[in-house]
Design a protein around this nucleic acid. Structure first.
Lengths: 155, 155
DNA sequence: CTGTAGAGGACCATTTTAGTACTATTTAGC
DNA sequence: GCTAAATAGTACTAAAATGGTCCTCTACAG
């Protein structure tokens, strides 16, 4: 578990396809190409357009195309567009929203883990996702999560 | 989003408390101490016991205690116990479960990201979660996610 | 034996997610 | 202008996951 929603997954498939075919395509064409249900594709593209990840053109010959170069769209962008900011726990979305704060010994660890994951996802571009041959860049979760100091007291 | 369930969050609170109080406590006492609802605490502890993260003793004076030292219980263990294996996409749980594989250009990237996150969570122990002063160890998501080679083609 | 405490399910209510449908708006082409 | 192709926006429904509760059974200390 700890998973993102199916729609987010579909969105990556869509975007990866759009990165592959560089030209503008209608929602219908994209649905056809990706084998996803038409209405779902429409809905996703509208959301992605609102988030600024794709540009839309209305009217006949209209359709959608990536708003930026594939390498400038990150996995974090996609997740943000569809699910809002990454937050593995409710607390980790921000401070002070947790009524258990006084008794809870968990503290800020999740928040740091969260930031780390988020940073890692920010490092992965659509280009990395799209091209199955490309070796992922070094997801440097470490840097952000490390936060303060530390290195190893691990077993 | 991309979040773990509330129950998992509660479980960390519980376990962190158990790591703090080293002695055996009944479900009721733990509920009291953590301000979580009694039945929910019971359910969680049962699940955790089944997963082997806590030991249980029945009968009067019974209760629960950590089965291992706090530093030997990882965030990944906790998530695994409550939600099953981490898998941010359905595909990433394993290969061949995706009927879109032929048309999907996304390939294995998510799987590698997933492994990275999982490894990172495996590096964080209950001790790190419990002690709010402790600086997290370096979550080396990089190593696993990098997988093959690569280092930087990032902007 | 009796009471306390966990084990294991079954169950229900709520929320979230996925998917669909409908109406309005824009615009190319005739 | 008119028409048709396409997106924009929103509302709605169905299904699934989640969170939470309850009930019965078993183990064991006193």
């Amino acid at each position: 578990m700890l998973r993102m929603s199916k729609l987010t997954d579909y969105a990556t498939v869509l975007l990866a396809h759009m990165a592959y075919e560089r030209h503008i395509s209608s929602a219908g064409e994209l649905a056809e190409a990706t084998q996803l249900a038409g209405p779902t594709v429409s809905k996703l593209l509208k959301t992605l357009a609102r988030a600024g990840l794709v540009d839309s053109v209305r009217g006949p010959q209209g359709g959608y195309a990536l708003a930026r170069l594939p390498e400038q769209i990150s996995a974090a962008d996609i997740i943000d567009a569809l699910e809002g900011p990454v937050a593995i726990t409710e607390c980790s979305a921000g401070a002070g929203q947790c009524e258990l704060e006084s008794v809870c010994h968990v503290g800020s660890a999740w928040q740091r883990i969260n930031r780390g994951i988020r940073t890692a996802l920010g490092e992965v571009s659509l280009l990395d996702l799209q091209d199955r041959a490309s070796p992922l860049p070094g997801l440097d979760l470490a840097a952000e999560a490390r936060g303060a100091t530390s290195s190893a007291n691990r077993a």
